[in-house]
């Protein structure tokens, strides 16, 4: 699936909820289901700066494609992070750099993107793109 196809799928899932409670329960559930990040990757280098809760992001490349694994102390952030990981994982650095992440706005979570200082979703997106740039540079 392309990045946009995954985004559209998430948007469709969120259309099922007509109130904030359902939406947040779903995000919390995503957070709970996100596989635990191995302790070795929960290191200082993988911490995303600018978040109120600690968020770890680990990236690696497999068959020309980038993969992300992440974790957070806070469950809602973890749910949000889980969606980002789902959208961005298993794509080439070029695809990631070209991507337009419209799903966050479409599912009504744009405020989480704006509140960079409190939950760092924007920092997380930036860091994912930074990894894409780094891996691209390494290949050239």
């Amino acid at each position: 699936m392309t990045i946009n196809e995954i985004q559209d799928e998430i948007i469709e899932e969120f259309e099922l909820f007509d109130d904030w409670e359902g939406k947040y329960e779903y995000i919390i559930d995503l957070g709970k289901k996100l596989p635990k990040l191995a302790d070795e990757h929960k290191n200082q280098d993988n911490i995303i700066k600018g978040c109120q809760s600690i968020v770890w992001l680990h990236a690696y490349k497999k068959d020309d494609k980038l993969h992300f694994e992440a974790d957070s102390e806070a469950i809602i952030v973890k749910g949000l992070v889980s969606m980002l990981v789902k959208v961005m994982t298993n794509h080439t650095p070029e695809e990631i750099l070209k991507s337009d992440l419209y799903f966050i706005d479409k599912v009504g979570l744009a405020s989480h993107l704006a509140q960079t200082r409190s939950n760092g979703l924007a920092s997380m997106v930036k860091q994912m793109r930074a990894y894409a740039v780094a891996y691209q540079a390494k290949d050239n």
């Binding site: 947040y24 809760s53 806070a74 809602i76 952030v77």
Partner: peptide, 11 residues
């Protein structure tokens, strides 16, 4: 986590 408390109360 306190952040989850804050986000859900804000809602």
């Amino acid at each position: 986590h306190p952040q989850d408390v804050g986000v859900i109360l804000d809602q």
